[in-house]
Amino acid sequence: MTRKALVYVVLSAGAVVTTFPFLWMLTTAFKTYAEAASPTVDLWPEVWQWQNLGETFRAAPFATYFANTFLVAAIVTSAVVVTAVTAGYAFARLEFPLRRVLFGLVLATMMVPFEVILIPNFVLIHRLDWYNTYAALTIPWCANAFSIFLMRQAFMGLPGDFFDAARVDGCGHLRFLAYVAAPLVKPMVVTVALFAFLGSYNSLIWPLIVTGTESRRVVQVGLTMFSGEAGVQFNLLMCASALVILPTVAVYFAAQRHFLESSLGAGIKG
């Protein structure tokens, strides 16, 4: 079992490298301003400044921000899962005219830099009278090429005889998709949901531009409050960043359970 031990050693070494910045962020969160600003890599604070937590919360109405963020992320995540599974399935398994053109156009939406699409989309939001609403925060992000593409690949990877077998049982596409195909690619569905959640959760510029009042703002906007004109309050920024990252880590921790079980094996047996 020396090979197994070696795998663990290498993985753990890698883990140290990947966690170090995160750890640094956590400890910086409880340093004094001067300590946090000085560019040394002293990990531990001289004295733990627990009051930073309170100061962080005083800087912005984070409770409102968190509530909004979760609401928006939940809507976007569920919508993206639906649009990605349905569209991904259509592109992978159905024959219809313009399929390649449509898929090309879907991919094309990934190819324009954000800076360029910002203004036309804002004008659109304004014409629809969605400024400062949840609709502006969610609807434009309810489908994305990345997720559709990922689901298409997942469905294409499924053995074709699965569908034929289902047809024999008198099962149409929709029921096949809902009862056979989607459960089989559950790891990919979870991945799509995870990245949809992260994408929505981490967006900053768009929410800042389409909202005005505190009641519609999200946590990432809260993180910008610590950057003043004469510099950044690193300790508070890191404190807030750590708080903001926690839910994403929790979501990932919960989601990754679904990568562990191979559902395809179960599908073949069942």
Binding site: I205, I209, S227
Partner: peptide
């Protein structure tokens, strides 16, 4: 008063709103 981000964010926001003519 509404917080609109740093100067580059404000510039983006105002530019977008100018093109929306509001």
């Amino acid at each position: 008063a509404q917080y609109a981000g740093d100067y580059s964010d404000i510039f983006r926001k105002v530019r977008a709103s100018i093109q929306a003519r509001a």
